[in-house]
Amino acid sequence: MTEAPPRTPIAADRRRWARYLAEERSEAQVYRDLAERREGEEREILLALADAEGRHADHWIALLGGEPARLPAPSLRSRMLGVLARRFGSIFVLALAQSAETRSPYDTEPFATPRMAADEKIHSEVVRGLAARGRRRLSGTFRAAVFGANDGLVSNLALVLGIGATGVASQFVLFSGIAGLLAGALSMGAGEYVSVRSQRELLDATEPNSYGDEILPDLDLDANELALVYRTRGIPSDEAQARARRVLEGARAAQAGQAPSASAAAHPAPAHRDHDVVGSALGAAASSFLFFASGAIIPVLPWIFGMSGAPAIIVALVLVGAALMLTGATVGLLSGTSPLKRGLRQLAIGYGAAAVTYLLGLLFGVSMG
């Protein structure tokens, strides 16, 4: 129900209500578009958010005295969200929507009800939860992509700028850049392979053993070590003893041909294997190699196309700066923070490392000259 206006509205209020109405309808449509690409619980949540935005729209329609003859266009952010939701329905849309819900104007809007302001805060947390699901699903791959590409960008930019500052021939700078690309990519791939392989081997060592049916009947029914197995899995002592007794009684009955084997009950298969989360060692190695190489090739491009000296360095800086801004903005979008701030942070880190090696290269060039 729409509450009574706190004061007599003026023309500026009515224009603001019309903007709110346009925004609410745009946001509701974004959630509906996202829901079309989801199923199950996520779809239901998104449709519920769309219904809530519809209720807010009804509030402004009531204050306006009915449907306006013409509504203002939604904000650029809302229109962009709509395009992304219709075309992609990706985690980026939810991250942007989370940021938009956080900046709701209803806290200071005298004609918005307290319930509407509270709704917007809850919507922010709901969208945050949905976005978090997507972030968890892509966290491993995304981490490898961003870290690998950034490592390649920064390390090879620092390398070619440091070598180039010494005044050597452009062919030597190109060779150094290609060598740095291959060395770094191979190192990243090998390191990722060893890391994932070692983690899988550690997980193998922690998998519960599967005991054969033949050993269970030989355990003491009243004092058996099977209960200790259950206790190591976090089961309380009394419950572990009771479960062990049931398993052994079942095993003895099975041995006597009176009941099915209890081995499966004694050692149930885990609901999921951590190996699936860790992934393949070869796949991780290949991904790290390619991600690093894709970043490391960018600083070398000017020399590949025949440039040299200061023009090549300037072009390399521009290309790498654009790539660093892009990866930083992507991290910002997915984390629900400012893409510009994250992009500038990545840029400062990359340029800072390159500046150090460039100054060292100048010093070496002067000393050698």
Rank of each mutant, 00 (worst) to 15 (best):
S124G: 12
A117Q: 13
A144C: 04
G129E: 11
T141Y: 11
V127F: 08
V126E: 11
L130H: 07
H123E: 09
R128P: 00
F147R: 11
V127G: 11
G162M: 08
G164C: 10
D151R: 08
L138G: 04
R133C: 02
S124C: 09
A165N: 03
L130Q: 11
G129P: 01
L153V: 04
T141Q: 12
R135F: 00
V127Y: 10
R143W: 04
F142T: 01
R135W: 00
G134D: 08
V146S: 07
H123K: 13
L161I: 03
G148H: 14
F147S: 14
V160K: 15
V168R: 11
G140A: 14
E125M: 10
S170F: 07
I163E: 13
G164F: 04
I163N: 12
V127E: 11
V146M: 08
A144F: 01
D119H: 10
N156S: 10
N156L: 06
K121W: 02
A165C: 05
V160E: 12
S124H: 13
V168M: 06
R133P: 00
L138S: 09
A158H: 02
A118R: 15
F147E: 10
A165T: 01
T141N: 13
A165L: 05
L138C: 07
V154H: 08
L161N: 06
A118H: 09
V127L: 15
V126A: 14
V154D: 03
I163L: 15
A149G: 10
R136I: 00
S170A: 15
I122F: 01
V146H: 04
F147M: 14
L130T: 05
R135V: 00
L159T: 04
A132T: 05
E125C: 06
A165W: 02
I122T: 02
A117W: 05
S170R: 14
R135Y: 00
R135N: 04
A165P: 01
L138K: 08
N150S: 05
R128T: 02
M116V: 04
A131I: 00
